[in-house]
Design a protein around this nucleic acid. Structure first.
Lengths: 366, 366
DNA sequence: AAAACAAACTGAACCGTTACGGTCCCTCTA
DNA sequence: TAGAGGGACCGTAACGGTTCAGTTTGTTTT
């Protein structure tokens, strides 16, 4: 019982109607509105379809007419495969997929490489809307998405006119974290952060680059750190910040190494992502630095690996974020204005933060 | 500089052409074949488009005309979110995404829940082809995919007429693993496996169910085990096999518990996936069983977690599998026959397998 | 028995685009 | 200056459906 032979000219609704001697409408109704024709005729239509190898209405033609693609687009700034290699992104996508599934729509991952600025893929995607995840604000793909006449939801992005948004309050979360570290007594702190712009810049980051960062999340976190540090009397302009273009623990390692080489007196590394922090922990281990006795390390995100190494971090509900994004996009209740959703975060104090070795500890002192 | 006001009647190629006093063809050419019209006119077209808020040719209409959707569909048997929660699936998808990206096509995740048998999503997906990953051979979604007049590639599936396939030789790989365990001297062995059919059956599996399993991969692995065990003089009909519907380490734990409760003399647990094995290790720990002294545990797949716990397992190139699937699907070099790709596997002997406590060890004996 | 209504089916318009095979006209060559 | 050649643009016909406003037929209501 093999599959039917691949016919040269595939059957269409029209050819089926001709074969049956009924109108195209009737055939269409057989598939979409069974109540519009008699059960007998419907059965006859379906059987003839089977016989002719007609696979049912063509999805693209249907989409054109109904103006519904049945899919949500996802725009990532990274290589598509990044979606599956970064645990944070995976969590987000899991939530997004959940939301799409509930609505019965597909999830269309748009191949938008950051390198070749080929915006065409955005224009080619047959989707009912876009979710934009962690894209720099000057990315041409983002502009392309906004130019499309479909709704969009952006995540971790500054507020955009007419566009829904879901995110967390990075400033509040980062401040909590900073105050924890400062509260432990740290004053010589280093910062590891993810890429700030589309051009690669692995190394130390000066203030101007921090302020002009196009990756909104990173920028907010740095700004919050600057504010909290300054409030505690730490001169932010003297705080070393190391940037890494690629987001991997290996890069976290090398960033930590670079920072510790140049600033050996640092007692704490604040990382703007768990991945970087995990790398920093590796590097600390390699150097024989005990954590948290010799070095405090903190992360951000709350991925599974962070739990495993008992990282002090901020946990954000990545899965819920994805789900919220999907719901926002797909609940096409024509709202009057754009909607903003801000999710809660939680400071998780793990085993990687403690008072600095050199800190004055008044409760132990004379 | 906000976005343009959402116009009631969006501009189309035709309205743009009318506005410009040129033909639709010319406007189309302005976007698709710049060499077909003068640079000045093209510029004028593009500027007018900008002014009228025309976002460029509609992707769906284009797809209808060109018969290209620019996307590959992915059919999973599981909830969509499973794609992101199972590490093995994530690896596969990473490879798949990589392959799609190289070809510049999107990846369309089809929302095919195993519960509600709603095949419509398969019919609704505007894609140029499907990749089918780890789906039971009697799944109606699979049938729906095959009925569509687009190419398909199946993974980990028995050979289907007219359909490309990529996979590993589960029989060879499992045999290597079985021989390793048998070679260590184990004779009282328990098996933990993933779901064998679409209906839930958490618990012990009898031979008939093993033989009629619809999840091809699981079946092949069990069959290979049966063969290897029999060859070593172990009566397969006496080997306890516990099945779990859900694929998680928690289920692995409970499955191991169930098996060890009923068969306390078992000295080795062979699991058909790393996830289950990781759960089994947890359960062993909870019971105070030392691994591998008191209990040998093996997995299958070679996910990152397996490395971490130094699991004895079979490593299969999941990422490459995904990539191969994408390439197979997208290289539409009209081959004569369907193509099969079989990837290599590697037996990884970790720290979770060793000789049984009670084994006769002739080289130590009198 | 006429009017009213419902069920079953149809015709034509429309969705927005691209493919194909022209036509037009200007320039270059001999 | 006729003819060839080519750049620039166009008209028409799909692509495969869905939708809506009918039309026909048969049944019920008054």
């Amino acid at each position: 019982m093999g599959r039917s032979i691949h016919v040269r000219r595939p059957a269409t609704l029209a050819s089926l109607a001709a074969e049956l001697g009924v109108s195209r409408t009737t055939v269409s109704n057989a598939y979409n509105r069974p109540d519009q024709l008699s059960p007998e005729l419907r059965e006859r239509v379906l059987q003839t379809a089977e016989r002719l190898g007609y696979p049912g209405p063509d999805p693209v033609a249907r989409s054109l007419r109904t103006r519904k693609a049945g899919a949500a687009g996802l725009l990532l700034t990274e290589n598509l495969s990044y979606a599956f290699s970064d645990p944070g992104a995976v969590n987000f996508l899991e939530g997004l997929a959940l939301g799409c599934e509930d609505a019965g729509v597909g999830l269309h991952l748009v191949p938008a490489s950051p390198l070749r600025e080929d915006v065409a893929a955005v224009h080619r995607a047959g989707v009912d809307g876009f979710v934009v995840y962690s894209v720099p604000d000057d990315d041409p793909h983002l502009a392309a998405v906004l130019s499309r006449p479909v709704p969009a939801v952006v995540c971790d992005q500054p507020k955009l006119d007419d566009v829904d948004r879901v995110g967390i309050d990075d400033e509040v979360a980062t401040t909590k974290l900073a105050e924890h570290v400062l509260g432990l007594g740290h004053r010589h702190i280093g910062v590891l952060c993810m890429r700030l712009g589309r051009e690669r810049n692995d190394g130390f980051v000066r203030i101007d680059r921090q302020n002009s960062a196009h990756y909104h999340v990173q920028q907010r976190r740095l700004t919050a750190l600057a504010k909290a540090f300054s409030a505690a009397g730490v001169d932010w302009s003297k705080v070393p910040v190391v940037e890494r273009f690629e987001h991997s623990s290996a890069q976290g390692e090398s960033a930590a190494a670079q920072l510790l080489d140049a600033y050996p007196d640092v007692t704490a590394l604040v990382c703007t992502s768990d991945i970087l922090a995990v790398g920093a922990l590796q590097e600390a281990k390699r150097r024989g630095l005990r954590v948290p006795i010799d070095l405090t390390v903190t992360g951000f995100d709350g991925i599974a690996d962070a739990d495993r190494v008992e990282l002090t971090t901020v946990r954000q509900p990545l899965k819920e974020k994805g789900r919220a994004a999907a719901e926002l996009l797909l609940s096409s209740a024509d709202r009057t204005g754009p909607k903003l959703i801000t999710l809660d975060t939680e400071l998780v104090i793990g085993a990687t933060s403690g008072p600095p070795r050199t800190a004055e500890q008044p409760w132990f002192g004379p």
